[in-house]
Amino acid sequence: MQITLTVNGTQHTLDVPENTLLVEIIREHLGLTGTHVGCDTSQCGACTVHLDGRAVKSCSMLAGQVDGASVTTIEGIGTPEALHPMQAAFRECHALQCGFCTPGMIMRAIDLVAEQPDLDSKAVRAGLEGNLCRCTGYHNIVRAVLHSAGSDQGGAP
């Protein structure tokens, strides 16, 4: 099937099989490998991207569902030279170790802060329910999100 979607501001028209997942479009057709696949039951959140501005799991979306949509991936929010504030907060708070869950975690965290600006530690922890990290014990991820949200609870990075 032919679909048209905008990824990180660039419009693409692609011819893909109907059973193609959004994450496959992103990784394999567009070569944007920052979005990761960590499970096959839609729980780990490593594949999280923004679909029309909201965090979704790109492993659980079909090509047809994103026809006409706008998708933002980790590559679309900042660069090493001009980091998104959430990316910077993750670095400053040591909120990543192996880096595999990180893109999905950052994409969800941005969405979380946008939908709930008055976050505290408990709300961040609840808000990250859909993202698994095996390295950090979440401690520094929570700090990074709070820091980025401008909460006092984040403390100094």
């Binding site: 096959d40 979306m61 079909l62």
Partner: peptide, 23 residues
């Protein structure tokens, strides 16, 4: 197919094999 949050994982696991998905 509605939101697909149950159906798509089911399809991925090859536990369903519909001929047509009607979104």
């Amino acid at each position: 197919l509605s939101g697909g949050q149950t159906l798509i994982p089911t399809l991925k696991q090859r536990l369903a094999a519909p001929s047509d998905l009607i979104d």
